[in-house]
Structures are given as C-alpha cells and as structure tokens.
Amino acid sequence: MSKKSFRQAINEALRQEMRRDPRVILMGEDVAGGQGGSSGVTDAWGGVLGVTKGLYTEFGPERVLDTPITEASYIGAAAGAAATGLRPVAELMFVDFVGCCLDQIMNQAAKFRYMFGGKARTPLVIRAMYGAGFNAAAQHSQALYPIFTHIPGLKVVVPSSPYEAKGLLIEAIRDDDPVIFLENKVMYDDEEEVPDEAYTIPFGEANLTREGNDVTLVAFGRMVGFANEAADRLAKDGISCTVIDPRTTSPLDSATILDCVADTGRLVIVDESSPRCNMATDVAALVAEEAFDALKAPIRRVTPPHTPVPFATVLEKLYLPDVGRIEAAVRSVMGYKARQEA
C-alpha cells in the first residue's frame, strides 16, 4: 500500500496483468513512442501523457505495439485479436478519436457475441482519455461515455480515483467482454493509497462514498470528487447527502440508485457529458419510472450546456459542472415545496 497517482495506478494495473498473462498486449499511438525516430530512443513517450511509460522496456515490441495513426485499423485489429486468442488493451488516446473507429467498436467488437449466437468471446479493453479542463477544446475534451453506454455488448467504466482505476482496469482486462475504460485526463496526478498487489473491483456495483438522509447524488468519474466536496460543504448546514459512484455506466447498478432514492426522496445527478441523452437523463428516467412515489422533489441534473467544449479558460470554467453548481442544485431540491392542490 502506498500513495499512487491515477497515472501510476493504471500503469501498475497494466504491468501486473501483462506479467500475469502473456496474452495481454498493449497497442496504440505512441504507447511506447520513438519507433523510427532519428535518435534511436525507444519508449520515448510511454503514451502521450506517460501512462504506459516503462512497459515497452519490460515487455518489448511484441507486446507493446506502437501503431500508425490509423484508429480504424488498430482498434479493428484489437477486436480481431481479441476474438482469436489475445487479450489486447488498445489505447485510443483521446476518446474524441472514436469518430475514426466507431465501426470497429460498435458494429464489430460489441456485436460479435450476439450476432454469432454466443460463440465469440472478445476480451478487449479500449482505454481512452476523456474530459474537459485542460483547454484542449472541442475535439479533445468530450465525455463520450453515454455513446458507448448506448451500445449493447459494450461494458463502460468511468473510474473516479486511483484506487478505483487500478481495480477496475484489472477487472476489465480479465473480463471476457469488450470494455471501454475512460480516464479523465485532469485526474492523472490525483493521488491516494493504492494497494501494491493486484485486485479487482466488480462491474455493476456502485460505490457509496457518502451516506446521508436528505439527498442522493449520483456522479460519474471526476464528478464524484466534486459531489463529495459539495456533500461535505452541505453537511455543515445539516444537509446530509448520499453520494453514489456507479463506477460503470454499463452495467449500471440501478438497484443501489433506487435504494438510495427510496431513502432520501431527492435526486441530483452530476454528469460531465453533454446533457441530451446522457447518463443524467438515463438515471433520471430510471428513477422517474421505478421510484416515482419516493420522490419528494423534482430530479435535478447538473451537466454542461448543450455546446461543444469551449477553448478559452473562462468559457471552459463556465462549461464544466463544479462544486458550487452541485451545491446549488442540492439546495434547490431541499427547498422544493410541492404545489398545494386547490
């Protein structure tokens, strides 16, 4: 057990699984870096933000494969390799690049098992960075997990901390279905205690990071930390919140969400993805349908506006949900008074 960053936790998960299982391979753009460069340096980058650093040195070019910048071919290759005996972890760098290879994910990997009558296993992990906050603008900042969540056959993981990231990534690598594993790029330097040993966190089991009586907060990925911070502030005013980190958007732990809403009667959902057809709408629909009677106030969603992610710092700050907006949403549902029937 020691303090590890989000980046280190992911690197350690990859390293431990590659040591454990020779079928686990890594591929992606510059996952090592330096191939064919004039300096002769290999492992020059170890991923664009250094997450896979050192793996090439340990496992060599057969298992850490730099790819050309051709997402369709290598993501498709990862799917094909997964269906034929390897356990690839393919890095898509920025999830925004899924536009170049959605077919390989959506029409191929996700559907093999069903289309082929249960005869296929596709133990594929696609890692990608998501999230705003780095002034990376509209094509490098999106939170696209709802797109993948929408596709049957995929599992979708949105880890909220270094501990969560390591356990969920090892689970993803050992899983026999295609898994999309999304890392918020702003969190790579976040640190917490992470066991040195390998461990797994099961999919579809939400984590309650706070337990309270008044409001249930459901938050995803980086937003979990924001929700916890808001809950701590609100507790000072006697408003106690449950904070749910679903960990995976597919499968989704609906039972825990419904249980908590049944206890608190109020729901605020915090989602970094664009507001239409995102996880917030999905959870809101679930609760409206299954727990209508438990609700004491309307469901509130805290999301960005329906715009591309802007570049300028001032605009990006306005765009992203923050602790203050979460706090305000909770206060508004606490202050809700039902209209009296005449």
Binding site: Y163, G167, P195, E197, A198, Y199, T200, I201, N207, L208, E211
Partner: peptide
C-alpha cells in the same frame, strides 16, 4: 459501518 465493510471488501478483492 460502510467504511468497515469497504475496508474488508478491499482486502478480499486482492489477488490470492
């Protein structure tokens, strides 16, 4: 407590 359960689950998740 929830934390107690979480602590034990964390240990039980470790390989081996």
């Amino acid at each position: 407590t929830r934390n107690m359960v979480e602590g034990i689950i964390r240990f039980k998740r470790l390989d081996g």
